[in-house]
Design a protein around this nucleic acid. Structure first.
Length: 218
DNA sequence: GCGACAG
DNA sequence: ATCTTGTCGC
């Protein structure tokens, strides 16, 4: 069932508490042929959102399709409620794809969230598709040091609970905060992100969407 | 009350 | 996220 997108902190948290029960963290990936990436940029001083969705082949990571959708922004940015601000436009862009992807890489957290429903988990539950969260910075969780080389990692923890992995995707760059969104586990999420990071700090699908949503032509 | 806080 | 040129480094 759909839910409102314009919410205050209390209502947003209540919706997240209800949706988190639908998140599945067991590996359910079938054959992966296309991996989607998504990101949202803002224009007009934050009044308009531009959601970009890309679809790349697997293996090969060749760009096969991309879509951009503009939409008026209805929610301010509130830590913990990012998905309410960005998903409406992302869902529209995703609907424009010629076929659903087998996996979606998101710019933000998966379950590494106060209520375990970051934007990737939220998107996974709403679409039913496998999703992964790959964020550029931390929202919640603690971790030890991460080696400087590509592939080095440290578990992201909240006490004894495993939330994801802090992963160095390129030697010398700041690590990414990787966590499962829906239908896969922490280790599988980490492997897919690393496999998709061939040229940049961000996975290729996300990087391509990032370009379109910010300075690209949509 | 104070600090933290995805994009 | 966004406002913004040049600059340090591999």
């Amino acid at each position: 069932m759909p839910h409102p997108w314009r919410v205050d902190a209390r209502e947003g948290a209540a919706i997240q508490e209800a949706l988190r029960r639908r998140v599945r963290l067991a590996d359910e990936l079938g054959e992966v042929r296309r991996i989607a990436g998504m990101d949202v940029g803002f224009r007009d001083g934050g009044a308009t959102a531009c959601a970009a969705v890309t679809c790349l082949s697997w293996p090969g990571l060749r760009l096969e399709e991309s879509h951009c959708v503009y939409r008026g922004v209805e929610m301010p940015y509130i830590p913990g409620l990012l998905s309410f601000r960005e998903l409406p436009a992302v869902l529209d862009a995703l609907a424009a794809l010629s076929a659903p992807p087998e996996l979606i890489l998101c710019d933000g957290q998966g379950i590494a969230h106060p209520r375990r429903l970051g934007i990737a988990a939220h998107l996974g539950v709403l679409t039913g598709l496998p999703t992964i969260g790959a964020a550029k910075s931390r929202l919640v969780g603690e971790h030890g040091p991460v080696g400087r080389e590509r592939g080095a990692r440290a578990p992201l923890l909240d006490g004894a609970e495993r939330l994801g992995t802090v992963l160095r995707t390129r030697t010398g760059v700041r690590p990414l905060y990787v966590s499962p969104g829906h239908r896969l586990d922490c280790d599988t999420a980490c492997e897919w992100v690393l496999a998709c990071c061939t040229r940049y700090r961000l996975p290729e699908p996300t990087h391509a969407a990032d370009r379109l949503a910010s300075r690209g032509r949509c």
